[in-house]
């Protein structure tokens, strides 16, 4: 904030001095009023430390240690990891599964949320409730329950393609929330009615009017879904698929602690790239939303 003294500088002669005098009194008094929000900054700082210290430690560890020839490791652990064919195969398996999860959940969720908004608005509370279920449903319970059922479909059960079908359930809250929020913002009912009045069919209207508006919500939800599917450990490990997190865990159990932290850093970076992209998209979305409001 600009200080009153600076403001007074620009004023000529007497007026400037008089204002400055008043300002100084105001300044002295203000000490008692807008206090520096000490506690707010304390909690923000505490949260920042809580967030950063483990990340810092992890990164430090992944660059740490000394090699047999006495040199410090630097990127050594990362390079070692990249050279491991098991790393590459598990990574690509996870990426593939994550893509399939995104595709499958979009296919399932986008039409459903649209339908609920357009035709069954009274189902929204049910959807809201259902969408918190995966937050609290233990993945391990789901696996335990699914195993006997899936054994009836051996062609699927033995292949890693079974994972996306299960991950869709856990991606549901994130995708639902972001699409739902996106639809809330654009008043779907009015838009589609206006479009129908102008002669477009409902679904033609959706394709041309609504989907572009919803792009950032869908991309955001997809990124989250991707990150979740990429990092899922419980189900993959219990169904004995060697995905990326399972591989990290396996390395971590062995003597190669530095490699394990390097892998964790890679996994962390992946999630963060997704989140950073989300931030950029979210900001773009907000700007367009604001444009709609201001005259």
């Amino acid at each position: 904030m600009t200080t009153p003294a600076v403001l007074a500088d620009g004023l000529p002669g007497d007026v400037g001095r008089k204002r400055a005098a008043i300002s100084r009194r105001g300044q002295a008094r203000r000490g008692g009023r807008t206090r520096f929000p000490l506690w707010s900054w304390f909690w923000i700082g505490f949260a920042a430390l809580y967030f950063l210290v483990p990340v810092f430690s992890l990164v430090q560890f992944s660059f740490g240690g000394t090699l047999a020839n006495g040199r410090s490791a630097g990127f050594h652990w990362f390079l070692a990891v990249f050279d491991d064919p098991a790393f590459r195969s598990s990574f690509w398996l996870s990426a593939q599964i994550a893509f399939e999860t995104v595709a499958l959940s979009l296919l399932l969720m986008v039409p459903t949320v649209f339908w609920v908004h357009l035709r069954l608005p009274r189902l929204k509370p049910v959807m809201d409730f259902v969408s918190v279920l995966p937050f609290v449903v233990p993945p391990i319970v789901l696996v335990v329950g699914l195993e006997p059922f899936l054994q009836n479909f051996t062609w699927l059960y033995s292949r890693p393609e079974v994972l996306p079908f299960i991950y869709v359930v856990f991606a549901l809250p994130f995708l639902y929330r972001s699409i739902d929020a996106g639809l809330r913002a654009i008043d779907l009912r009015t838009l589609s009615e206006a479009a129908s009045n102008l002669g477009a069919s409902t679904f033609g209207a959706l394709a041309r009017v609504v989907l572009p508006n919803l792009r950032s919500a869908v991309i955001g939800g997809s990124l989250l879904t991707f990150a979740i599917a990429m990092g899922e450990y419980t189900i993959a490990s219990l169904l004995l698929f060697n995905t990326f997190p399972v591989y990290i865990f396996y390395i971590g159990q062995g003597p190669a602690a530095h490699e394990a932290t390097a892998l964790s850093v890679i996994s962390l970076l992946l999630t963060w790239i997704a989140m950073a992209a989300l931030f950029v998209i979210g900001r773009g979305g907000r700007e367009t939303a604001q444009l709609g409001v201001t005259k």
């Binding site: 009153p4 403001l7 204002r19 008043i22 300002s23 105001g26 008094r29 203000r30 008692g32 009023r33 807008t34």
Partner: peptide
């Protein structure tokens, strides 16, 4: 809060008061 100036209520400056 004003950048400068005074507010008097019943002749008393109130800007000090929360």
């Amino acid at each position: 809060w004003p950048d400068s100036g005074r507010v008097l209520v019943a002749g008393r400056d109130v800007l000090d008061l929360p």
